[in-house]
């Protein structure tokens, strides 16, 4: 139950952050957008790791909260003007959090395989709701014509329409989410959920009402997942129902595994790696005809990750850190 990152991990993360700060200065719009997506999905994967890796609840419906926040932003954004982030973000989080509370209240009652199927089913219910109804563009998806802005009084402090503004806002949000989840994991609540992951029965015998702790953990993950969804909607200003779909949930789980389950920073790196691999597979110069069917390679990659990778990228970094520490001694 060591939550506080070691010095080595902090150094590695600072290195990554330094690279991230540098990216917008390249001025390459394609890259800036791609890295924004990486950071936002990294935040999403991190929130999923909070429940999968620390509470032991394997949710296959995490995209529900991601997509729900994105749709909420669409629904509260007027068509002719930008919405103020200062109230829009809390509203989006409220919607995601409430959905997580309701879905969680029902699904946390179940365990293991049931939990996987139930979370998947509820997320899919929301998918079909947005896909089949016409409240937000149905299967075609919905648009956000003006990105949120931060306005205080008369003063516009920030406009997420600017690519670099959104980029840095996402970077700060990612760092905030990491710090926020770290603080929670270090708190009494955080220790309790980690205890539940290791031995839930014993936690009950010690006197913890584990249901409540699991539910609150599920809601926290839903909130951060919703935050990520809010940002994701700002990237393209487009919200397709697929954001809530099972593929999105599945890929987030792949990011968690690829990045290293239960390391928190790892899944963010997993998101970077997975999106990077996806870009690679789509590269015509390298894969030719096959690049049009890159999903086959992605599927094979997912299978390879599951079969071969044990502790993911995060695990690898931790291991190197331990080695170095050992050799210093």
């Amino acid at each position: 139950m060591t939550v506080i990152p070691s010095k080595f991990v902090i150094i590695v993360l600072c290195f990554f952050i330094a690279i991230l700060i540098f990216v917008p200065f390249t001025g390459d719009k394609y890259w800036i957008k791609l890295v924004t997506r990486m950071m936002v999905l990294g935040m999403f994967a991190m929130s999923l790791d909070f429940i999968v890796g620390y509470t032991g609840l394997v949710s296959f419906g995490h995209a529900a909260f991601f997509g729900l926040a994105a749709y909420t932003l669409h629904l509260i954004s007027p068509e002719e003007t930008a919405v103020n982030l200062l109230w829009a973000l809390p509203v989006c989080l409220l919607v995601s959090g409430t959905a997580a509370a309701i879905i969680g209240a029902l699904s946390v009652r179940t365990r293991g395989i049931y939990f996987i199927m139930v979370t998947l089913a509820f997320a899919q219910m929301l998918f079909y709701f947005f896909h089949d109804s016409d409240i937000a563009g149905g299967s075609d998806g919905a648009f956000i014509y003006f990105k949120p802005v931060i306005v205080l009084g008369e003063l516009t402090l920030m406009d997420l329409d600017g690519q670099n503004v959104l980029y840095f806002f996402s970077l700060v949000s990612l760092m905030f989410a990491y710090g926020f989840l770290l603080i929670i994991l270090r708190s009494p609540f955080g220790r309790v959920i980690q205890g539940i992951k290791v031995n839930e029965h014993r936690m009950r015998a010690l006197g913890y009402n584990t249901y409540i702790y699991k539910l609150v953990s599920f809601i926290i993950a839903g909130l951060i997942g919703g935050y990520a969804g809010f940002l994701f909607a700002c990237i393209d200003g487009f919200v397709p129902p697929e954001l809530l779909g099972w593929q999105e949930s599945g890929l987030a789980l792949v990011m968690v595994i690829l990045g290293g389950i239960g390391t928190l920073f790892g899944p963010a790196l997993g998101a970077v790696a997975l999106l990077g691999v996806e870009e690679l597979f789509r590269e015509r110069h390298i894969f030719g005809q096959l690049s049009e069917h890159w999903q086959i390679m992605l599927g094979a990659f997912v299978i390879a990750v599951v079969l071969m990778l044990k502790n993911g990228i995060g695990g690898l970094i931790l291991k190197i850190g331990d080695r170095l520490k050992g050799s210093v001694r």
């Binding site: 603080i183 929670i184 609540f189 309790v192």
Partner: peptide
């Protein structure tokens, strides 16, 4: 840490989110 989980249990709720354990 094992004992901490037990000791904390008798204190009632452990719903404290922002204070280090």
């Amino acid at each position: 840490q094992n004992c901490w989980l037990a000791a904390r249990a008798r204190l009632g709720s452990a719903m404290r989110f922002f204070v280090p354990s």
